[in-house]
């Protein structure tokens, strides 16, 4: 085995893992607190990427400022989805909300199609194109930036959940909605904020990967599926699990593509899901009950 190649694969893993974790945390947060399987997650990811394209390319604003706008846009859209679709159906069974989310997914994706056309958009970034070379490893500055921001956002999310009043209320809701309500937690507000936060994280992942790849209306589909895989790996509703799950998925994909077959890159995640469910149906790091 070629050591240089392995090191390069590991570097690629680390960089992709950050954004995968971001995607996974957003989805698992929404599921954990609201018991909603969010099929629009991938569309929020695409929305973030198009948001960045719109603000930085069409409006011509500063790249870094544009990323903030894209994330904020994702949060607003998420809050809207929650208010319009989920709030009236609070307490409905999980299948009903899933159908609603599937409907919303179809509407959002095709609206993107209609708004932007089907030809891929590419977003220029302000980073030099010469890579950073450390021994046998080359990394593009853009990807290093993406990784850095992703890690920052993950830390910020942990801080928000574990160290703030809002986070306290969210955790209380996660553990026991009824008791939390009795203790004076405004459940409706918590739900809206949770959905907005989760959507914002998905939009952030989209805005970060948009310039790395290209932006297309269907880019969200694979993102949704990968987020599902990450969340199953880590256990539904488990944030630490989703973080580690993101890196595991990136690792398995990269190694699978590098040493087994590049065609099965995207299959690795789903194969893991099936293996995990055979041996540990609630995910590797799960504490929640099996029947969700």
């Amino acid at each position: 085995m070629n050591v240089d190649q392995l090191l390069q694969h590991l570097a690629n893993t680390l960089i992709m893992g950050g954004t995968y974790a971001l995607l996974g945390i957003g989805l698992t947060l929404i599921f954990g607190i609201m018991r909603v399987v969010n099929f629009t997650h991938g569309e929020l990811y695409a929305f973030g990427a198009y948001g960045l394209y719109f603000v930085s390319v069409v409006l011509g604003m500063n790249f870094y400022v544009s990323i903030l706008f894209a994330i904020a846009g994702g949060m607003v859209l998420g809050a809207l989805i929650e208010l319009v679709l989920l709030r009236p159906k609070r307490g409905a069974d999980i299948d009903t909300t899933m159908l609603l989310m599937i409907g919303a997914w179809i509407v959002l994706q095709n609206t993107e199609h209609l708004a932007w056309g089907s030809i891929a958009k590419s977003i220029p970034s302000p980073f030099p194109t010469e890579p950073l070379v450390i021994g046998p490893i080359s990394l593009s500055w853009l990807r290093i930036f993406v990784f850095g921001v992703a890690i920052l956002l993950i830390i910020a999310t942990y801080f928000l959940i574990n160290r703030t009043r809002l986070g306290n209320a969210m955790r209380a809701t996660f553990q026991d909605t009824d008791t939390a309500a009795l203790m004076g937690v405004n459940i409706r507000a918590i739900y809206t904020m949770t959905f907005a936060l989760g959507s914002g994280l998905a939009a952030a992942a989209g805005a970060l990967l948009g310039p790395v790849f290209v932006v297309t209306p269907t880019m969200g589909d694979l993102a949704s599926l990968k987020a599902f895989a990450i969340v199953i790996l880590g256990g539904l509703g488990n944030i630490t699990g989703a973080t580690i799950g993101g890196f595991i998925l990136a690792f398995v994909e990269e190694i699978g593509a590098g040493y087994i077959s590049s065609g099965y890159r995207d299959a690795m995640g789903f194969l893991i899901i099936i293996v995990v469910l055979l041996f540990r149906p609630t995910g590797i790091f799960a504490r929640v009950e099996r029947i969700g």
Partner: peptide, 20 residues
């Protein structure tokens, strides 16, 4: 001879192999 799916966007793994 490395292949890529028509919708694939991240070819880093294939290119890392070619680099070696």
């Amino acid at each position: 001879v490395e292949i890529m799916d028509q919708s694939a966007q991240d070819m880093s793994a294939q290119l890392s192999k070619i680099k070696a």
